[in-house]
Every structure is written in structure tokens, then in C-alpha cells.
Design a protein around this nucleic acid. Sequence first.
RNA 1: GUGGGUAUAGCUCAGGUGGUUAGAGCACCAGAUUGUGGCUCUGGGGGCCGUCGGUUCAAGUCCGAUUAUCCACC
Length: 379
Amino acid sequence: MSMSFVLLKTEGRARRGVYRTAHGEIQTPVFMNVATQAAIKGGLSSFDLADVGCQVALCNTYHLHLRPGEEIVRALGGLHGFMRWPGPMLTDSGGFQVFSLASLRRVTEEGVWFASHIDGRRLFLGPEESMAIQASLGADIAMAFDECVSNPAPRDYVEASCARTARWLTRCRDEWRRLTAGDGAQNPDQALFGINQGGTYDDLRVAHMREIAALALPGYAIGGLAVGESTEEMYRIISLVEPHMPADRPRYLMGVGTPGNLLEAVARGMDFFDCVLPARNARHGHLYTEEGCLNIKNEKYARDAAPVDAACGCPLCRHFSRAYLRHLFKAGEILALRLSVLHNLFFYNRLMAEIRGAIDEGRFESLRQAKAERLDRRI
RNA sequence: GUGGGUAUAGCUCAGGUGGUUAGAGCACCAGAUUGUGGCUCUGGGGGCCGUCGGUUCAAGUCCGAUUAUCCACC
């Protein structure tokens, strides 16, 4: 297996590492840029991803299975060839859609029946199906098929769901081995990451983490967070689970979060992140700056000649004023979305680079203290 | 010039037979958004109901005049 994770340095629980894939090295901690349908929403292509400092692109199994279908993606060279992104990639398994499309699915022991959100067609996604689709998509990292449980949820439900997700993980592992082993293997270099669940129940979280750690997978994720619980509760669960995650494997906190969340989660031993927030916020006119998050649509920016963030080197901030960007939003121009998404992703990727530099130099804690609260402020 | 229609929020319009603080959509202003069903969702400000007069306990609503505007015909 060409996959490997090397821990370079630690500061407290914060970790600086490098994860090697067949498509290049990932310097961690890392933010993965979300391209659910093999495109960044807001009109960005893979070429733009390079410009915003992206290391890893993330796509979605459920969405690409429905459209265009994994066989088409495979015939065109897998996701790397299809969307022309040469760097490392990860696919999410469809487990999050068990949560986000809750009204359109039914969970069984075998897997999940969905009604397609596009045309209502029934489709089945279980551990084997998800792994097979992800093998065809050909990302460097495949995620286990799990059930992302909503919050709050009764303990009985979470306990049963958690046990089922653990059984599904064994099936994912078996199918992954089959798909990556032998001469005819479709994608011998694809890694599988397991996902911890357990809602907000401490004992379930820890027991589940210990159980799945025994499978010795290439990486592990914490899932089911940032789905309704408080920020404090999220931090508490990360700190609770982290000591039970293998130290020599990457830890991926799924779906998180704000810039402040990233700093706090790195401080709690997390290495990989992804989140739709920077892209979604950008599309809604919320732009991150060193002073906090601003809403460019606010009237106070109508005559503001300054860039969104004077300290930023992104294409938006290098060339355009706040007044111009506000105008583009008010006028409904597509360019507003594109420039804003470029900015926010640039901001996130640069923040991660700053975090890596700080850990390298043993000053991460002071960076966290200086920025965690400030970056999440609304200005 | 004659006949007819229309005047209600910034815009386009709803407001049976008169009856509490006149509504909607868009626009405007502001919040929300965490492994992306969504340029989405939630909230807010804003109107001497063209003007003047009359009828009535009570008029956006009925009557008259007037002004503006549109249409048709001379």
C-alpha cells in the first residue's frame, strides 16, 4: 500500500503530519475543499482549486452515483481524470445523506433505501454498494458507509444505529479489501477511513471508537458532529474520543467548521477537515477576514473602496473593492459568487497553512488564542 | 375635442353588498447557514389609498368636481 501517514511534530495535542497518496502528499492539518458533484459550487473548476491553495478535493458518492453515474466517471479516468484534478481526493460515502435527506430514506440492517432527490427513483445504498461506487470514482480516500445520526436523538436509537454502523464498517472493510487486493484490483491505492458515531452519549462514542480502532484502518473520522449540538458539546466529544483514535493514523473531523472550530479542533488532535460553510457563506455574501466575518451585502459597504481583506492575497482582494463586490451581489451577477467562493476557500486554505507553520515553530497555542474567537466574529 | 378606463408601498397589483391598527409579490434593510436537495430560509422598515368637496355614526370602497395618465374615435 502506497498510503502512509507520518507524524512530523506535535504541540500539546496538535499534530503536524504528512499523508502520502498516489496523487501526492497532503500536509496536515488540512482543509479539504468540497466539490460534491465534482465541481465547487460558485463556478470554480479544478484549475481554480490550485489557485486557492487546495490540497485535497472532496466529492460525494450519493450525488455522483445519481448523476452522472460512477460508470461514466470511471470511463473518463475516475474523478481525477473526469474533473481534471491531479491532486489527492476523498469521496464521502453517502452516509451524510442518510441525515440530510432524512425525509427521503429508510434505514434497514442491509443499508439505506433512498428516494432520489432528483426524480424520486428508488435506490439502495449499503456498505458494499458505497464501496463499489467509491472504487469506480477512484478517489485516494474512501469513507466508510455510516449513518450520520441527527441531534438530539434518543439514546436507544443512537445505540442501535451505532452498533449497525459498526457492523457496516466490517462489511465496508471486507468489500474494500476485495476491491483493492489482487491483480485485477480496480483501485489498489484507495484507502478506507472508518467513522466514529455515538451522538452526544459519551460511553457510546468511546465504545464505538475503541471497537472500530481495532480494525486498524488507514484513517479514522469523527462523524455526526455539527448537526445541532452546541459548540461546547462538540469540543467535549472530540476531546473525549481523540485519545482512543490510533495516534499513527490521520484523524478527520467530518463537516467542521468555522475558522474558530478548525483552530480548536486542531488543538484537540484533529488532522483533516471539510466543510461546506466557506463556500455556502460565500454564496450568501458572508466573507471571512482577519477581523471576522462580514456580510458584503450590507449597505455600509456600498461606497467602500477597500478590498474585503487588505491582508488577503486572493484574486478578489488583489483587484476589487467591497463596493464592487456588493454591487455584483445586488445585481445578481454570477461573478459575485465566484469571486466570493475563491476568497473564502483561499482564506481557509491559508489559515490551515498558518496553523501548520505555527505547529512547526511551536507557536500554535498562541495562534489559537489570538485567532479562534476573532475569526468567528460577525463584523 | 368626444367617449371610456385607471389612479392604493420604490415597482406591479389585491382589497364582494361602506365597518378594528389597508395586504401580496418584487425591490430595500437585516439575521441564519458546519461529511451542500437550495443564489435558500427567517425576520424587519415602508402607504394623509392622486387632490378638493359631499353623503354617512363610519369612506380605499358611494356621489360630484378637479388633476394626471392610458385606450378608442374625431
